[in-house]
């Protein structure tokens, strides 16, 4: 019984940590990079120029 209660708490905690990390990372990225850079992908761009698309 106690094991499962503990597991429940662990699961809540781990989920909280993971979500917090993702939100923090998203905020950091949005802060560190210019919005224009983040939004610079274009539809179909890489479809047509495959060979030099390594990056």
């Amino acid at each position: 019984m106690i094991v499962w209660t503990l597991l429940e708490w662990l699961a809540w905690g781990a989920s909280g940590l993971i979500l917090a990390w993702m939100v923090a990372d998203a905020l950091r990225v949005s802060h560190d990079y210019d919005e224009d850079v983040l939004l610079s992908s274009r539809e179909g761009e890489m479809i047509m120029d495959e060979p030099h698309d390594a990056a």
Binding site: L10, A11, S15, L19, M22
Partner: peptide, 11 residues
């Protein structure tokens, strides 16, 4: 808690 753990891990 397990539902949310699964979703956050995969996300």
């Amino acid at each position: 808690p397990f539902v949310i753990l699964a979703i956050s891990l995969l996300a």
